[in-house]
Design a protein around this nucleic acid. Structure first.
Lengths: 155, 155
DNA sequence: GGGTAGTTGCGAACCGTTGGCAACTACTGC
DNA sequence: GCAGTAGTTGCCAACGGTTCGCAACTACCC
């Protein structure tokens, strides 16, 4: 009884079908579920993704989620970063064109303003000749809610 | 036969003595060795630090290195970041006032220009009210040597 | 110099991750 | 619509990094 689950009927399922066909991967329930989960979550740890998957397809194993993330990463569909300390966080590459601000106190994740990101990238490239990989850029610190005093000082 | 090693006679040993006394921690050989190793390495993974320690004090166990890093982190002497994907990297806080550029190809680590860092911090703070923790900021990408074409394009 | 409590080393346990293998199924061609 | 093939999966064991428990030891205070 492998790969037995309700068919993927979501609207998003269509785009995955085309995407997977384009890169030569089969459309399997676990694979589509992982993509759906990533799309819904935005970004998530392996266990988050697995949990989201098993809610709709309980038979999908953790190993498979790991393998899917690896396979999809190899094919450029998924990328990973380290939003939380020591934790690999996965996301769709379509979601990886911006950096994240990660609050160390409350764990909140905010997307970094594109203008700031672009300027930072340009400056780093100009000064160090270093090409910033924004899909992997995570900025740790404290958000406005967790560091009100500092925000006032800095303001 | 615990804690048997050559006494810490390095010049740096003096500053550690004062530092540890100030924060109420005992001066033990393993602890001083870890501090010396961090000072010498700049930043390093647990195994790097452990290796550096055992070269001078072979009896120091890996567990102790872990515990020291944890203890020293709690006391604000050490901080950690993630220079290499999925790898916790430790450093002295005195060494943590700058961000790192990490090349994903060759693994080279470059210290980010202070001016760029300061401007980035100010912009992020102003726009998002987010206080950047530079000791934890690692920027992934490709260095000049590993991405010559891109550097030309960007230039 | 003696007493106390912080610190250590050892080894087991723990957790996230990876790999092997047989079973299963998505896709292709007819 | 059906059979064949190969990609994919689930199960389970293994692996490596990290943490924990405990008895022994020693740095520090008096």
């Amino acid at each position: 009884m492998v790969m037995s689950a309700q068919p993927v009927g979501s609207v998003a399922g269509r785009q995955w079908a085309e995407l997977l066909h384009a890169i030569g991967l089969r459309q399997t329930t676990p694979r589509l579920m992982v993509l759906d989960a990533l799309s819904a979550l935005g970004h998530g740890r392996v266990e988050d993704i697995h949990q989201a998957v098993v809610e709709r397809a309980p038979a999908v194993s953790l190993s498979t989620v790991y393998r899917q993330l690896e396979t999809l990463t190899e094919h450029g569909v998924v990328s990973h970063t380290h939003l939380l300390a020591g934790t690999k966080t996965y996301q769709l590459v379509s979601h990886a064109d911006h950096a994240h601000l990660v609050c160390r106190d409350c764990g909140a994740v905010v997307e970094l303003d594109g203008t700031i990101a672009a300027r930072f990238t340009a400056e780093v490239s100009g000064t160090h000749g270093f090409t910033v990989d924004f899909g992997h850029l995570s900025v740790f610190g404290r958000c406005a809610g967790c560091a009100p005093e500092r925000a006032q000082e800095a303001g």
